[in-house]
Simulated scan of single mutants.
Amino acid sequence: MLTGLEQLQSWFTVTAQSLFQMKRQLDKLGELVVKVTYESDPIPLQKPHLEERVKYLIYHLIKSSFVVEKQPCMPTHPQKPLIIKTGVQFTTKVRLLVKLPEVDYQLKVKTTFDKDLPPGRVSRQFFILTNNTKVMDIEDYSNGWTQLSEVLSWQFSTFAGQGLNKDQLSMLGEKLLGQLASCSDCQVSWSKFAKENIPGKPFSFWMWLDSILELIKKHLLPVWNENYIMGFVSKEMERVLLKDREPGTFLLRFSESHLGGITFTWVEHSENGEVKFNSVEPYTKNRLSALPFADIIRDYKVISDGVVPENPLKFLYPDIPKDEAFGRLYNSQPSKGVSTR
């Protein structure tokens, strides 16, 4: 049972989630109007007003969620308010009741004193012992992985139109928690989720995940919503899945080493039975802005030892013919460009 500020924080956070979801839906409406509209379409007329209204509500909700959690108190009697005297130092504790990645990142707090007092009030002079502007120290908190995984799936569902399945969430859990991911009630701290870098990488788990969401929304939405992107699968599991498949079987996954990158890997079998796996450098937003991902898959070719270029991609995992899967997503005429190896 939540009480006091914990209950308020729950209400503020749920309201903020709803407002940010409205903002994303308005963004999608804007993208839709660019593609399809008609005479007397109400969206172009009403959308600016709705956007301003949502921004206004978000601004005032976050502003109202900033509260003083701990007032200055007597050192020997913490339950009593501090009697301010000359030369006495005191501290206070503030808190933001909205707990979302969108508003927790690099939040700054500036301390000021109101010098415009009503007539008859005595003015005291205060001195701030440190810099008056600080990055807010968000108090570290944790959630169980089961609860967090539901939120992540919801985030993908609202932002990209398709949630995450059990296997995808399992891989994310292993990436974030390692072997502890099998423990459903394992706690994930805010620092580990959004602040600390992934081991061996110059970015945090949330930065990596957020860059993937952005890539899907801007460049991969049709392919993602067809469930053609396996997405979250380790290189080790990728090989396990592909090794017994037909030559030319490939799968699509998000890069673990780049922010906002997608790659594909296919399997080949040599005459002596040796299994070989081939992967390409991740495609990022810069490359995907020039050519749709479905067209890249269709036109990808390999030159090997002077042999006529051919596309090694035959079947989307597990066994869907490439053109059957992506045919209706092709947007342009086949390209003559090749990739060499």
Rank of each mutant, 00 (worst) to 15 (best):
G327P: 07
K85E: 13
G120P: 00
G260C: 02
F113M: 02
V267A: 11
D137Q: 04
L209F: 04
P78T: 06
T76S: 09
E51V: 10
L57F: 12
Q333P: 03
E274K: 14
M74W: 05
L82I: 01
A194S: 07
F90K: 01
T146A: 13
L316Q: 13
G30Q: 12
S40N: 09
H258T: 14
L251Q: 09
L164V: 05
G200L: 07
S182Y: 07
C186M: 08
R121K: 14
E268Q: 14
L172A: 02
D323I: 11
G327F: 03
E139V: 03
H269G: 06
D299A: 05
S184E: 13
Y300I: 04
G261T: 04
V240C: 09
K134Y: 02
P81C: 07
K55D: 15
F113G: 08
K322N: 15
Q7E: 15
L177Q: 01
S123C: 12
F156D: 06
E238D: 13
Q125W: 04
E139C: 05
T340L: 11
Q46G: 05
S157R: 04
H219I: 02
R124T: 09
H269I: 02
L213E: 05
R53G: 09
K243D: 10
L57W: 12
L252T: 10
I43K: 00
E226G: 14
V33M: 01
E214C: 07
F90T: 06
P321N: 14
S182F: 09
I43H: 00
I83F: 08
N272G: 15
Y317M: 08
I138W: 01
K243G: 09
G163W: 01
I296A: 09
V33R: 00
A160E: 12
E174D: 03
G87Q: 05
G261V: 00
I198L: 01
W190D: 00
E246M: 10
V36E: 12
T265M: 05
V33I: 10
G161N: 02
V307K: 09
K99V: 08
R239L: 13
E196N: 04
T86L: 08
S279D: 11
S65F: 01
I43P: 00
M230E: 14
K314N: 14
I84V: 15
N131E: 13
H258C: 05
M22N: 11
R245Y: 13
S204Y: 00
Y38C: 00
I84F: 01
M22C: 15
K70Y: 07
L241F: 09
V88R: 11
T86Y: 07
K243T: 12
V308H: 10
L45S: 05
S157E: 12
S65M: 13
G327M: 02
P318D: 15
L252N: 07
E274A: 15
Q25N: 11
Q179P: 01
E271V: 04
F264N: 05
T130A: 14
Y56T: 14
K63M: 03
V14M: 10
H258L: 04
G337H: 12
E324M: 08
S335A: 13
P312K: 00
D137C: 02
D27N: 14
K115H: 10
R287A: 03
T340R: 12
T340E: 14
G248H: 04
K336W: 05
E214F: 04
V34I: 06
L8C: 15
S304Q: 10
K70W: 03
